[in-house]
C-alpha cells in the first residue's frame, strides 16, 4: 500500500512563469468564493438554497436527477434552483470540459488505467461519498461556502473531515510501515 499523491500537491512545484500565481490553489479558492457569492446574487430569484454557488456532490445530483426527470418523467428530488430552471445547474459539465481543456493545453492529459478491482472500489466509493455528502447537504466545497455564509454546523463538518483525513493518513502510514517491515 502506498499513499496516493495528486500530481502537483506539496510545495515542490517550481515553474518559472509570470502567470504562476494563476496556478496557485489560493487563486482558485478566491475565485470560487467570490464567483459563488456573485452567482447567488444573480440567480437566487430562480430558487434556493443559499450558499449553493458551487458544490461537486449537490450539482452532480441536480444534473443527474434533473436530466433523469426530464428524460424519464420521474420525480427525483433536487434543489429548487435546478427544479425551477429550464435545465439543472451545469457546473459539473463545465468542470469536466474545463479540466479536459487545461489538461490538453498543458499536455497533461494521459490515459491512466487501473485494474477492475480498482474500478469497483472507486465506483463504490463514489456511491458512498455521494450518500454521505447528501446527508450532510454538501461536499467539502459547499461546506466552505456555508461556513462563509455563517453556518457553524458546516464548520463542524470541516473539522470532522480534517479529523477523518488525519485518521485515514495515519492508518495508511501504518500500512506502509508494515509492508516495509
Amino acid at each position: 500500500m502506498y499513499i496516493h499523491m495528486s500530481d502537483k500537491s506539496g510545495s515542490e512545484h517550481t515553474g518559472q512563469s509570470h502567470r504562476d500565481w494563476m496556478r496557485h490553489p489560493a487563486f482558485l479558492g478566491a475565485l470560487i468564493g467570490i464567483l459563488a457569492a456573485f452567482t447567488q446574487a444573480l440567480l437566487i430569484s430562480a430558487g434556493g438554497p443559499v450558499a449553493y454557488g458551487f458544490c461537486v456532490a449537490c450539482h452532480t445530483r441536480d444534473l443527474v436527477n434533473g436530466l433523469t426527470n426530464i428524460v424519464a418523467g420521474t420525480h427525483l428530488a433536487l434543489a429548487p434552483i435546478s427544479a425551477n430552471a429550464v435545465l439543472p445547474v451545469m457546473s459539473i459539465v463545465g468542470v469536466l470540459i474545463g479540466g479536459y481543456v487545461a489538461a490538453k493545453k498543458s499536455k497533461e492529459h494521459k490515459i491512466r488505467k487501473g485494474t477492475n478491482v480498482d474500478y469497483a472500489i472507486y465506483f463504490l466509493a463514489g456511491v458512498i461519498v455521494l450518500q454521505l455528502a447528501m446527508i450532510f447537504g454538501g461536499c467539502p466545497y459547499r461546506a466552505a461556502l456555508r461556513t462563509g455564509y455563517g453556518d457553524l454546523s458546516a464548520l463542524v463538518f470541516i473539522i470532522s473531515m480534517a479529523a477523518g483525513v488525519i485518521a485515514g493518513a495515519y492508518i495508511m502510514l501504518k500500512w506502509a510501515e508494515r509492508e516495509e517491515a
Binding site: L28, P88, V89, S91, G94, L96, G98
Partner: peptide, 20 residues
C-alpha cells in the same frame, strides 16, 4: 441558471486542473 453555472464550472475546472 444553466448558462451561468456552466461558465462558472469551466473556469473552476480549468484552474483546478492547473493548480491540482
Amino acid at each position: 441558471v444553466p448558462v451561468v453555472t456552466l461558465m462558472l464550472g469551466l473556469l473552476i475546472g480549468y484552474f483546478a486542473q492547473r493548480s491540482g
